[in-house]
Nucleic acid binder design. Structure first.
Lengths: 201, 201
DNA sequence: CTCGAAACTTACCGCTTGGTAAGTATCTAT
DNA sequence: ATAGATACTTACCAAGCGGTAAGTTTCGAG
């Protein structure tokens, strides 16, 4: 299968899984949207679980590059952390499907067997801990403290990014746009507060 | 149907929907766990959608009491806000099913028709805005700014509360317990930072 | 031109799904 | 005692599910 074709198939699957969840999407529905029969999809990916796994694997690959230093520039630990979280927000805004799918994975992880969540989240979270502990205010903090702090920022970012349909449904799309425009500045304030404050005693 | 029986049925449905999502649970599975046939459930609730709707309605009722002042005590706006968010965290820890189900609702809201998400979240969010604007540092902020700030704390709390299985899966349950023990203090710091800082220029 | 592999399609299959129809048991108010 | 509502059960159904089997078309390398 041509690489570009495969990517196209995975794109469609990713978008549908993100919208409706694993159980909410049939392979026939994905194939339909691609103009194929479901057996064509099964031919390429073997099973629904494997197709879903490929979608997750692709996301995890994208994730790994997220914490890379963008231009090889030397940055202070504060700048590194700030850039990372703002990048995360930007990525979440740009690829809303990805955030939604990961959120679903977080919810289903403990009960669906073939879940790939653990192995791809672990390095990501370990990197998060290291990044927090590189900050002067967090140098002395335990892994648990650093993770808690980083996880709170992660939550602020990801929870917001999946709320767009609901928020613009409640407040109207123009009010949502105002909210969305102001969000990064707000987030920056939150990030700086965490960076500066350090662990509680 | 006796009120207590009905509550029992809804409890079981709520727990299963929270675990596996709307599409991931069959009415037969819910009935099974209750020792009934699925037709008994259909008899009482009419359809799967209606049963799910009842589960959501019950959660929304619980939600409304959450922002009530606990003992009628007079509190400063700072104390009110701090208490609210810490209560939210406590409730989320105590009833993880509820958080999980609401998160799923947030994800499905825009595409599943009978979603009740919007109407029950609106008063909750409006109350959140008012509570933020009652704070001295946020007095001059717009609705959008106040909502963004409140929503970030909401995200930090709710995102964490659904991550327990994944986090303890990755780091082990004893490490997770350390994380969990330190989380509230960490959260308190974050809340205080938001309360004190105010909207960015 | 040919041959084989890759990319499909058509035809099924057994199972589960949500839901209907029709009956039966149980309880309660008169 | 009885009538009627409530709480079920058994029997069934059409539709959709993931997956298998067996062909057919497309296509690129030799």
């Amino acid at each position: 299968m041509a690489r570009v074709t495969r990517e196209e198939y995975l794109d469609t699957a990713e978008s549908l899984f993100a919208e409706r969840g694993f159980y909410g999407v049939s392979i026939a529905a994905i194939a339909d949207q691609l103009g194929l029969t479901k057996q064509a999809l099964l031919h390429h990916f073997g099973s629904k679980e494997k197709l879903y796994g490929e979608v997750l694997r692709r996301i995890s690959e994208r994730f790994e590059t997220l914490s890379d230093n963008p231009r090889g520039a030397v940055m202070s630990s504060e700048e590194t952390a700030r850039t990372f979280f703002l990048n995360l927000h930007a990525t979440a805004s740009e690829y809303p499907d990805q955030s939604r799918l990961l959120m679903r994975e977080l919810l289903d992880n403990n009960q669906r067997a073939a879940s790939a969540g653990k192995w791809y989240l672990k390095p990501f979270l370990e990197n998060l801990i290291a990044m927090m502990q590189a900050l002067p205010a967090w140098k002395a903090s335990s892994d648990a403290q650093a993770l808690a702090a980083g996880y709170q920022l992660l939550g602020a970012i990801n929870y917001y990014s999946i709320s767009e349909p609901t928020l613009s449904g409640i407040f109207g799309s123009e009010a949502y746009e105002e909210l969305d425009a102001g969000f990064p500045a707000q987030l920056r304030g939150l990030i700086d507060a965490v960076i500066a404050t350090g662990a509680p005693d």
